[in-house]
Each structure stands twice: as structure tokens, then as C-alpha cells.
């Protein structure tokens, strides 16, 4: 079975395609970036430019700094050397409110999806709307469609602890895209789900990329990367020995 159903994609598309004008040619620009933690350098000499609509995988052995790299990409960490520019603005010069604004334009799917456990799945997915002061009731229809698109309609009123691993990942993805962000960063989105569910999640991400979103997925699942390469023009970045390299076509 194909997932998500095509009709649902078509109806959800309008809310996902409210593209914002991107300042500058690159959505993320890393310039000789380095990050040290506890005296040791975790990442060094990293330069990367992500254009709007690109699709990247990020691989590397466990502990190589994939999660740290993603955190540098959404302003959760500030580089210890070099510069990280998000939408043309240096992270180091942003105050906390500007970082909050950036988070509304960057959808993040964490490895361990964190939700507010006392709110329902639907409320959790609508959380970015709520915190940015948008009228959640006015977006009710869009929210329903997005929930359906992620195949969570029957779980909408459940609490997050009641969800399975795959359902949590899809709910996290729905929450990451409800604001129609320009960038989607996913950290091991298929880490603890079976292959069929990985396929579904990949389909969702590919679909979002076709709508013009920049996508970056950190994973060490080579099967996932191979599966993606048949559907989308994806580039593979690898972190090895603290540096970022463009991986060859040998995958």
C-alpha cells in the first residue's frame, strides 16, 4: 500500500506550501565551523551550504557528532569557532527570541521524540501554532488533514505515552511540519521503527521535499539512503574524524 494516500497529500499540500521568502541564496550556511565540548574538539573545519529544496543525508559512526551537527543547524548550539548562518543571519548574533523565531522556520524531528505528555497527540502536533500565537481553532481543518496525512487520525486523542515508536515518529514529523517550515531536520527518524514504518516516514519526507522543503536526515541506516536515492536526488554527507565529507556514489 502506498502511504500517504494521494488524496490526503493533495489536500494537505496548501498548508505545507506556504513558502516563505528565503533571505539569501542559502538556508543554512556553515563557514569553517568548529565545535568543542569539554576541551575536546568534536567537529572542526566544517563548511557547508544548503540551498532551498535540497535533500541531504548525514551519516557517520555513532558518537561522531551527527546530533551535535544538527543542533548547530537549528541554533540549539553555538559554534565555538567559525560561523553558522541560518537564513543569512549569524547564530552568534541572535538573541533568544530570534532563536525562537528560527525554530518556527526549522522543523526538527528528534531521535527521542519529546512531547508534552499531558496533552493529546493532536494538541501536541498543534503546539507550534499555539506557541507562536496562531489561532489553533482557525487551523482545525488543516490540522485534521495533516494528522490524516501522517496516518494518526485514529490516535489523535491519545496521549503520547500511549503511542508506538512509529506513531511517535510520525507525530513528531507532523509537529515539525505544521508551521510549514523551510527546513526539516530529522535525527535518526527511523531509529526504532521497523522497515515498513521507515518506508512510510521516508515517503513523507520525500513528499515534503517535493513541496520545496530543504530536508536533512541524520541516519546510519544505509538501506534507507538507498531507498531514498531511487526517488529523490539526495546527497550524502559523512562525518568522519571530526570533518564533514561528501560521500561518494558507492552507496
Amino acid at each position: 500500500m502506498l502511504f500517504p494516500p494521494c488524496a490526503a497529500i493533495a489536500s494537505a499540500a496548501p498548508i505545507l506550501q506556504k513558502d516563505k521568502a528565503v533571505a539569501g541564496a542559502y538556508v543554512i550556511e556553515l563557514d569553517n565551523l568548529a565545535y568543542s565540548y569539554g576541551g575536546g574538539e568534536l567537529l572542526s573545519d566544517i563548511s557547508l551550504r544548503l540551498t532551498p529544496g535540497s535533500f541531504h543525508f548525514l551519516t557517520g559512526p555513532s558518537g561522531s557528532g551527527k546530533t551535535t551537527f544538527l543542533k548547530l543547524c537549528y541554533g540549539a548550539l553555538v559554534p565555538t569557532a567559525g560561523h553558522a548562518l541560518l537564513f543569512g543571519k549569524d547564530v552568534r548574533q541572535m538573541d533568544r527570541d530570534e532563536i525562537a523565531e528560527i525554530r518556527r522556520r526549522v522543523g526538527v524531528v528528534h531521535q527521542d521524540c519529546q512531547f508534552l505528555d499531558h496533552l493529546t497527540v493532536a494538541e501536541n502536533i498543534a503546539l507550534p501554532l499555539m506557541v507562536s500565537g496562531r489561532d489553533v481553532a482557525a487551523e482545525e481543518v488543516n490540522l485534521k488533514e495533516l494528522v490524516a496525512w501522517c496516518g494518526l487520525t485514529h490516535r489523535a486523542d491519545a496521549l503520547p505515552p500511549e503511542l508506538s515508536g512509529g506513531e511517535r515518529q510520525r507525530a513528531a514529523l507532523a509537529r515539525a511540519v505544521i508551521m510549514s517550515p523551510d527546513i526539516i531536520l530529522a535525527d535518526e527518524p527511523t531509529g526504532n521503527v521497523d522497515w515498513e514504518m521507515s518506508e512510510r516516514l521516508l515517503s513523507l519526507l520525500v513528499e515534503l521535499n517535493r513541496m520545496g522543503k530543504t530536508v536533512m536526515i541524520a541516519t546510519h541506516d544505509l538501506g534507507l539512503i538507498r531507498a531514498a536515492k531511487t526517488r529523490v536526488q539526495a546527497r550524502v554527507l559523512r562525518i568522519a574524524k571530526r570533518r564533514l565529507q561528501l560521500a561518494g556514489a558507492d552507496l
Binding site: 533568544r96 527570541d97 525562537a100 523565531e101 518556527r104 528528534h110 519529546q114 503546539l127 507562536s132 500565537g133
Partner: peptide, 16 residues
């Protein structure tokens, strides 16, 4: 702290 981390992640300002 966990709630605050989630709220910050989805773009909540400190004021909110």
C-alpha cells in the same frame, strides 16, 4: 524542564 525544552524546540519565546 522537559516541557520547557519541548516548548523552546517548537519555537516558543521565553515570554510565552
Amino acid at each position: 524542564a522537559q516541557v520547557i525544552a519541548v516548548l523552546r524546540l517548537v519555537g516558543a519565546r521565553d515570554d510565552f
